[in-house]
């Protein structure tokens, strides 16, 4: 009964067109209710395999639809719900896709610790070969490597439409570009004394010089005579902080501390 209903909803979900996606959440919650009736929303040892496949199929569809709707919270929820299914060792077709998307999500919010934790788990449970030939997993891994070493042009290249492994991954491109842009900006502030606006346009992957000036203003840079001048105070402030004379009170405090300790020891 409930099984038929769930199957029916799956069909409905698959036949949804791109502009009808907003109806999907309702269908999904009905599907989840059906799963609950089947007692298959959380897998247990005696859940029949057909129900398992049905449940993970529905949850995976839910995850992918959430990504398309840019609802990352609900995507994370689906991902967490899928974990018990994945640990039961029957690989479903979309498993690596969902995992890859989750990795990309972690990357786009800058949660590198979470990224590596998930990756470590994958390496151990799936084995190396599995991961290396899996394009959905390899994509975020490549991106992370490029981000960490600072080859931002590679990241830029990867986010182009034709390099993205599937359309869901494209959703993150925008976020990633914003991330690298702000990374590049913070690097440039320290690395260049000044920069011609035309070069800055290429460096920051912006479309026009007007966009560069807008961006510069947002970051508090000074743009004049066709060049961008970066503010320098930060470094000077740091240098002053490290100066011996300016924090003699710390030195005095430390020395007094030593004296007190010596007293207690001797």
């Amino acid at each position: 009964m409930a099984e038929n209903e769930a199957k029916h909803i799956v069909q409905q979900l698959d036949s949804l067109k791109a502009n009808q996606l907003t109806q999907a959440p309702q269908l999904l919650s009905r599907a989840k209710l059906a799963l609950l009736n089947l007692n298959a929303l959380v897998p247990s040892e005696d859940t029949p395999p057909t129900h398992l496949a049905l449940a993970s199929g529905i949850l995976e569809r839910g995850a992918l639809i959430s990504i398309k709707l840019k609802d990352t919270d609900s995507f994370t929820r689906y991902y967490q719900q899928l974990q018990p299914f994945y640990s039961l060792n029957n690989r479903s077709q979309n498993q690596s896709k969902v995992t890859g998307l989750y990795l990309l999500l972690l990357l786009s919010v800058g949660d590198y610790a979470g990224f590596h934790t998930v990756l470590e788990g994958l390496e151990l449970s799936a084995g190396k070969e599995q991961i290396e030939k899996d394009q959905f997993i390899q994509y975020p891994v490549r991106l992370e490597q490029a981000l960490m070493e600072g080859s931002y042009d590679k990241v830029w290249g990867e986010t182009k439409r034709e390099r993205v492994p599937s359309e869901e991954f494209g959703v993150f491109s925008e976020v990633l570009i914003d991330t690298i842009r702000s990374e590049i900006a913070s690097c440039s502030e320290r690395a260049y004394p000044s920069l011609p606006i035309s070069n800055a346009k290429n460096l920051l992957f912006l479309d026009s010089e007007g966009a560069v000036i807008q961006f510069a203003q947002a970051r508090g840079w000074v743009a004049k005579d066709g060049r961008i001048y970066f503010p320098q105070q930060e470094e000077e402030a740091l240098a002053a902080e490290k100066d011996v004379m300016s924090n003699s009170d710390v030195v005095i405090e430390n020395t007094l501390g030593y004296a007190r300790k010596l007293e207690t020891i001797v």
Binding site: S151, D153, R190, Y192
Partner: peptide
């Protein structure tokens, strides 16, 4: 791989 990469990498190292 490329000169651009090298530039970004050094910029990051400076940062």
């Amino acid at each position: 791989d490329s000169e651009e990469s090298a530039e970004y990498i050094t910029a990051k190292a400076i940062r």
